[in-house]
Deep mutational scan, measured.
Amino acid sequence: VSVELPAPSSWKKLFYPNKVGSVKKTEVVFVAPTGEEISNRKQLEQYLKSHPGNPAIAEFDWTTSG
């Protein structure tokens, strides 16, 4: 189950709350306009370098507050 949070234009930000008793931590995933899922800052940096014209990296908020 995921919750969609505010994201930069043409992107989606999905929040996957951890299940009770789960060892997996809460996860935030950005979905690029191409449909590619980005789950960490390093991936995001690589994606933005190879896909010019996207929002600046500073516009991506990895917190769950939206």
Score class of each variant (00 low, 15 high):
V1N: 13
V1H: 13
V1G: 11
V1K: 08
S2R: 11
S2Q: 09
V3S: 07
V3L: 10
E4Y: 08
E4K: 07
E4C: 08
E4F: 09
L5R: 05
L5S: 05
L5M: 12
L5I: 05
P6A: 09
P6R: 09
A7C: 06
A7Y: 04
A7E: 03
A7T: 04
P8N: 05
S9E: 13
S10I: 05
S10K: 14
S10M: 13
S10V: 06
S10N: 15
W11Q: 01
W11M: 01
W11G: 01
K12S: 05
K12F: 05
K13L: 03
K13G: 02
L14W: 09
L14I: 11
L14E: 03
L14A: 04
F15N: 05
F15L: 12
Y16R: 13
Y16F: 12
Y16P: 02
Y16Q: 06
Y16A: 06
Y16D: 01
N18G: 13
K19R: 15
K19G: 14
K19D: 09
V20A: 12
G21Q: 07
G21W: 03
G21P: 08
S22E: 13
S22A: 10
V23I: 14
K24N: 15
K24P: 15
K24V: 15
K25E: 13
T26G: 15
T26K: 11
E27F: 15
E27G: 15
V28I: 14
V28G: 01
V28W: 03
V28M: 05
V29N: 03
V29R: 09
V29L: 08
V29G: 02
V29C: 06
F30S: 00
F30T: 00
V31I: 15
V31D: 00
V31H: 04
V31M: 08
V31F: 08
V31K: 06
A32W: 01
A32K: 00
A32L: 01
A32I: 01
P33H: 02
P33N: 02
P33G: 02
T34Q: 02
T34K: 01
T34A: 02
T34C: 04
G35D: 02
E36L: 04
E36I: 05
E37P: 08
E37A: 12
E37T: 14
E37F: 15
I38E: 00
I38Q: 00
S39K: 13
S39W: 15
N40W: 03
R41K: 13
R41E: 09
R41Y: 11
R41H: 11
K42P: 10
K42Q: 13
K42L: 13
Q43I: 06
Q43W: 05
Q43N: 06
Q43T: 09
L44E: 00
L44P: 00
E45H: 10
E45N: 08
E45P: 00
Q46R: 10
Q46E: 15
Q46Y: 10
Y47M: 00
Y47V: 00
Y47D: 00
Y47K: 00
L48C: 02
L48T: 01
K49I: 10
K49L: 14
S50N: 11
H51R: 03
G53Y: 04
G53T: 04
G53W: 05
N54K: 03
N54R: 02
N54S: 12
N54W: 04
P55Q: 04
P55M: 04
A56D: 12
A56R: 08
I57N: 04
I57R: 04
I57A: 09
A58T: 11
A58M: 09
A58K: 09
A58W: 15
E59H: 06
E59S: 07
E59F: 07
E59Y: 06
E59Q: 08
F60D: 02
F60H: 00
D61T: 07
D61W: 05
D61L: 05
D61M: 05
W62K: 01
W62H: 01
W62T: 01
T64V: 14
T64M: 09
T64S: 11
T64D: 09
S65E: 12
S65V: 11
G66D: 14
G66N: 12
G66K: 08
G66A: 12
